[in-house]
Amino acid sequence: MAAVTGKPIDVHTWSTPNGWKIPIMLEECGLPYRVVPVNIGKGEQTAPDFLAISPNNKIPAIVDHDGPGGEPISIFESGAILQYLGRKTGRFYPTEERARVAVDEWLFWQVGGFGPMLGQAHHFRIYAQDKIPYAIERFTAEANRLYGVLDKRLADRDYLAGEYSIADMATLTWAKFHGKQGIEFDALPNVKRWLDRLLARPGVQRGLAAI
């Protein structure tokens, strides 16, 4: 973690693609934080204390003890947390409206499609006890389509929305596990170039190692 002062932000999370997004953002911003592990394998996401800050019983969630007006605030949903931290710090989330719209488009693309569909492909290919061909084929095909969208977007740019942003942070943690989703990078050179660039960032490396 970067050596900065201030009240640490509590990050309730676990080692999953969604769970890594917030430590990466906090590391990139140099904000102090404390990881509060929520072991989803043991069902800790249903504990009353966690539900009080994340009513959908999903990680991640944060408690910022130095929130608006100096009062604590709890936030759930990774996209909402990333936007909040971007506004709080003025980093990786532009203030100019056109630039912000571009970031929001790709952030919502990730939280609404890229993450959920890849998660389903991952689940049915790796973790489902019953291997259901229809489900495997359906979600692997959708994963391939979404990666194709991503590769096309990155054909003429280094990052999803101009400068490096919360949209990239949200997306990279899922793309990191492309192999488990049935995706090879042979036909996705732009995605590979982008992911290699992001994984080389010290803040990303520290965030991934934080959980």
Rank of each mutant, 00 (worst) to 15 (best):
N190H: 15
Y147G: 12
Y33Q: 05
G70L: 10
D168C: 09
N144R: 15
I75D: 04
P72D: 03
P94G: 10
Y159K: 03
E163Q: 14
P32I: 06
D196V: 08
Y159H: 11
T13G: 07
R206E: 12
W174L: 02
R153P: 01
A175W: 10
L85R: 05
L146E: 12
Q205M: 11
I40R: 06
A102F: 06
V63Y: 08
F108I: 09
W109K: 07
W14L: 11
D156A: 15
K192E: 12
Q83A: 12
R145L: 12
Q120Y: 11
W174T: 11
I40E: 04
V191N: 00
G113L: 14
L198T: 00
P72M: 04
E184C: 02
W14K: 12
I126F: 07
I24F: 08
F139G: 08
E77T: 02
I81G: 07
Y33T: 03
A47N: 11
G6Q: 04
G30L: 09
T171W: 11
P189H: 08
L107K: 09
S74R: 08
Q129V: 14
P116V: 10
E28H: 08
V149L: 13
W109E: 02
A155H: 08
T13Y: 08
A52N: 05
P48Q: 07
L188W: 07
G207Y: 08
G162M: 02
A209S: 13
R91S: 09
I40P: 09
